[in-house]
Structure formats: C-alpha cells, structure tokens
Simulated scan of single mutants.
Amino acid sequence: MDWDIKPSDVRGVLSRTGTAAEGFQKASKALETTLPNAAKHAGTLSFSGGEGSGMGPIAAALAALMASHNVRLTFIGARTNASIKGAMDATTAYVNGNLEQAANAQREALKTPQVVFLEAIKK
C-alpha cells in the first residue's frame, strides 16, 4: 500500500471540520433550549374555554421531535469526534513512520461509536 499524505493538508481539513462541527454543536444546544420552551408555550386543550392542563398535541409533538433528534445528533457528534481523532492519530503515526499504527487508527475510527443516553428529553 502506498501512502502519500501531506500532514499540513490533513491539519487544514481537520481544522475546518472542527469548526463546522462546533457550529453543528451550537445548533444542537439551541434545539435543547428552544424546543422545550416552544412546547411549554404551545398551550393545551381545554373544552371548557379555560386553560387546559397537561401536555397539548403541539407540545407532545415537539417533545417527540426532540427525543428523535437527540439520538441522531448525539450519534453524529460522537461519529465526528471519532473521525477527527482517528485522522489525527493516523496522520501522527504516518509522520512517525509507523504505517501499521496508522492503519490501526483508521480502522478504530471506522467503528460505530457507543453512545449512552441519560435522558431523552430535558424538561
């Protein structure tokens, strides 16, 4: 296997990827605040003309949306971090002249990350 890696180019790509990932993380954090707040203000159903109690259909839909996206967003973040770390480790090993270690680092980066969820929705 022939390798032709320019570490400075890899560093540039990883830097841009990290910057893009930070923007994605900020958007995810904004959803964690915005969706529960929107659900809180969505109102409830009341057949007597007064304010209802419990969770209305809009709030329930927003809660389900957040629960669904929370799993995806957490996985994307974990995958991005693993990919960046794997590329850095592989490039470092390449620079150090250890091609076997570089191949192992790349293999590790391709593994599916294990994500633990403490709570699906923050209230």
Rank of each mutant, 00 (worst) to 15 (best):
T44L: 01
E108T: 03
L35V: 13
R11H: 07
K111A: 08
T17Y: 03
G12L: 10
Q106T: 06
A61M: 11
I76H: 01
E32D: 14
K40E: 15
H69G: 13
I76S: 05
K85N: 03
T33K: 11
P36M: 05
L65H: 06
I76Y: 00
S15N: 10
G23T: 13
S46G: 07
K29L: 15
G50V: 10
G49M: 01
K26G: 05
L35I: 09
V71T: 07
S48I: 10
K26M: 04
A109M: 14
W3G: 14
K85L: 08
W3A: 11
E51K: 06
G54H: 04
T80M: 10
L35Y: 09
F75P: 00
V71S: 02
P7L: 06
A27R: 04
A59R: 04
G97I: 10
L62S: 01
I76C: 07
A64D: 04
K111N: 03
I58K: 13
N70W: 07
G54M: 08
S83E: 11
A39Q: 04
L73A: 10
E119K: 10
H41R: 08
A90L: 03
T34W: 02
L62C: 03
A67S: 11
R16F: 03
K111C: 01
N98I: 02
G23I: 10
G18D: 01
T80E: 08
A61Q: 12
L110G: 05
N81Q: 15
M1L: 15
D4I: 01
D89G: 10
V116T: 15
A20N: 01
D9W: 00
I84H: 00
S83G: 11
A93Q: 04
P113I: 02
L65K: 07
A21L: 14
Q114P: 00
N70D: 12
W3T: 13
A61L: 14
M1P: 13
A90N: 08
P113D: 06
S68E: 08
R107Y: 01
L73I: 15
F47E: 11
A61W: 02
T17P: 07
N81G: 10
R16W: 01
N70A: 09
D4E: 12
T112D: 14
Y94T: 14
P57R: 05
A93T: 03
E108D: 07
E119F: 02
P7Y: 03
E22C: 15
H41I: 06
S46Y: 05
E108N: 05
I58M: 13
N104E: 08
A82W: 00
L118A: 09
A78L: 01
A21Q: 14
I58E: 12
R72K: 11
T44I: 03
T74N: 04
A67F: 00
T17S: 09
G50Y: 04
M55D: 12
L73Y: 10
L31S: 11
N98F: 02
G52I: 08
A64S: 06
K29G: 14
T34R: 06
V10G: 06
A109H: 07
Q114N: 00
A63D: 07
T19N: 08
K123M: 13
M55T: 14
G56L: 02
K6Q: 12
A93I: 05
R16S: 14
P57Q: 13
L65N: 11
L14D: 11
D89M: 05
R72E: 15
E119C: 09
